[in-house]
């Protein structure tokens, strides 16, 4: 029952959250060694300043909503929308 908006956060964050894919399940948080991913009732945020770029959260995501912020996509924006299955 979420009414708010899910957002990917902070321009420095090395990881981007595809907000339309993220289900707010929190799996990535269980695996993040620096406690830099924050889940509220409506948002998943990655605090860029605390991220150590270990990449552990990427495979932990069941839907593949997390990607490296390699500069291809403007920070704070989501990656391409839609179904990631075929």
């Amino acid at each position: 029952m979420r009414v708010g908006e899910k957002t990917s956060r902070t321009s420095e964050a090395p990881i981007l959250v595809a907000v339309e894919k993220c289900d707010l399940c929190g799996g990535c948080i269980g695996i993040c060694p620096t406690d830099c991913i924050v889940l509220t009732e409506h948002n998943l945020m990655i605090v860029g300043s605390e991220c150590i770029r270990c990449g552990l959260c990427l495979p932990a995501c069941p839907v593949g909503a997390l990607t490296w912020n390699d500069g291809d996509v403007a920070a704070g924006q989501s990656t391409e929308a839609g179904d990631n299955g075929k």
Binding site: D23, C25, G27, C28, P59, V63, N84, G85
Partner: peptide
């Protein structure tokens, strides 16, 4: 890789039932 769970499950569902109606879905760890 990220997204494997979703992708593999979709594949399985399609093979077994085609395109069934979905009542709810959720990711989890």
């Amino acid at each position: 890789d990220g997204g494997t769970a979703y992708r593999k499950l979709k594949e399985f569902v399609r093979k077994r039932w085609g395109e069934p109606a979905v009542i709810s879905e959720a990711a989890g760890g």
